[in-house]
Design a protein around this nucleic acid. Structure first.
Lengths: 195, 195
DNA sequence: GTCTATACTTCGATAGAC
DNA sequence: GTCTATCGAAGTATAGAC
């Protein structure tokens, strides 16, 4: 089958999503107009509707695909070994995955409120499943005596907040390299749950 | 001097700010209209402009007064004793102060981007001053050997992110009381920096 | 697949009566 | 101090030509 020539269908769609992600992270969902997004991509506003049904669906798609990427990448990480080794593996994975995706991380926390209830539930479920991966590591560590934790659920949320918070201040041109930051946080996390 | 009678000047102003804080936390700055805020207060949109110059100033006032309250309350907390005691005092203060102000906390993270650059700088400076209070405790603890910390600045940001993250999931009707949550986090923070 | 043009709604902010 | 009325601008989304 011959493909249409001169068609940008394969590239314009992703470019719309990239532009939307960046603009919404910068200004907020309601503050960004379809005309702005179109302008960034280099088309007129009406052309966007070849790729998305409406603005609300665009937001959901951005958040949903981000959460799916997180889960897929986490599943492929295949952490193994002792609970302590798996904890360090999770810490490094979380930092390495999220730091290059700061816009998506910001959106997935700040713009959840702009989702319709049903869409909200789907995103929340995926996040919960990701959190459960860490909680399972903590449970295993408590079970075999390598960790001492008051409450595995609370500790899970505390550690994830601590790690994700890096996205609020990280500067690629800053004082510390990504590797140095990882090492500092690994030590911090390890001590937090140490026996 | 006789005060005007039938005037609601003293109460309408604060009510406007309360309504705006709640609505903006719920839907986002750009998504909330002046008409919505007015409707919540029980006046017409035009009446709001007796209390605020414009929408942008309203947002800045909300964030600025929140940061000022944080600093004032932190100053009055007058933490004293050993670094470990001061660290526990800070942890409990932070949780107790922020949990009842979840809307303001959310705004001061999510809506910073909607501030004019100059206003952004003023808020950022106040936040930095607050963070410095914790960092000073960590430095003192490292100096006298009661703490072992790789990097006091990073650890400061990590601990604050961990504590502030409680506002994302705390439910007053949830499994744990405020006091229990405090205790869990105190232990977590203590272990994080323990010698 | 993209454009131009536009229908329709809603926005922030102001003016002037009371 | 609040109301009604309104201005000018900007928003989402659609229709139809190319």
């Amino acid at each position: 089958m011959a493909r249409k020539q001169g068609s940008y269908a394969d590239t314009t769609g992703p470019r719309v999503r990239d532009a939307a992600l960046r603009l919404i992270a910068q200004h907020g969902f309601a503050a960004v107009s379809m005309r702005q997004i179109a302008g960034e991509v280099g088309v007129q506003a009406g052309a966007l509707y070849n790729y998305i049904p409406d603005k609300q669906s665009l937001l959901f798609e951005l958040l949903d695909s981000h959460m799916s990427e997180v889960m897929e990448a986490a599943a492929q990480a295949r952490l193994s070994g002792t609970p302590l080794q798996r904890l360090e593996g999770f810490t490094r994975f979380h930092i390495r995955f999220h730091l290059p995706r700061r816009d998506a991380v910001f959106l997935s926390y700040m713009e959840l409120r702009n989702l319709a209830p049903e869409n909200f539930g789907r995103i929340a479920a995926k996040r919960r499943a990701y959190e459960d991966r860490l909680e399972m590591i903590l449970r295993d560590g408590v079970a075999d005596g390598s960790f001492v934790v008051d409450d595995t659920r609370i500790t899970t949320l505390a550690l994830i907040a601590q790690l994700t918070g890096i996205t609020n201040w990280y500067d690629p041109a800053g004082r510390l390299t990504l590797r140095e930051i990882e090492t500092i946080y690994c030590a911090l996390v390890r001590k937090s749950v140490a026996a």
